[in-house]
Amino acid sequence: MNVFRLIGDMSHLAAIIILLIKIWRSRSCSGISGKSQLLFTAVFTCRYLDLFTNFVSIYNTTMKIFFLASSYATIYLIFMKFKATYNRNHDTFRFELLIVVSVILALLINHEFSATEILWTFSIYLEAVAILPQLFMITKTGEAESITSHYLFALGSYRGLYILNWIYRYYVEGHLDWIAVLSGIVQTGLYCDFFYLYITRVMKGKNLTLPA
């Protein structure tokens, strides 16, 4: 563990908690892409299958359990409890395409052709693009509530911090997993224009309204 990965995990945890608080307090999931949340749930499910077979640390296990529980809770809130507030007509990104491409890529490009490794690789590729339905929804509605932009900032920062973690691990431990690194760079890159808008607008108290 290093400070970059710890801050990254805390940023990821914060994002998930911010989203749950936003939906629970406002009793509404308006502006939230249910499709992105479904993809994140698939990412955690496929990546954390080794939860009970491969013990790494108490921290690792508790975080995995929390991420799994919170992502299922989030899709429950969106598609069941507050489904009347879900903007289905704005959440129209073809996310099936993201799943199919990730499956094909995972079958073609992986470290080892085994079930757990393919599922892990699939979760890495899927996570890189899982935010696209959410970003697409924001461009469609042209704006985002400030709490949603805080959620996105925390979520986008987490994988950016993981890139620093991978640089650290490369130089200190000589460890490099280029599948995770390249996917992490793509994932963080997708947030670039959002980060620009967040820093130039939201940080100054303005709302995140995309130029029409």
Partner: peptide
């Protein structure tokens, strides 16, 4: 190989 090591990350 490289795939075991990365599995200590979330």
């Amino acid at each position: 190989s490289s795939n075991e090591v990365a599995k200590d990350e979330l």
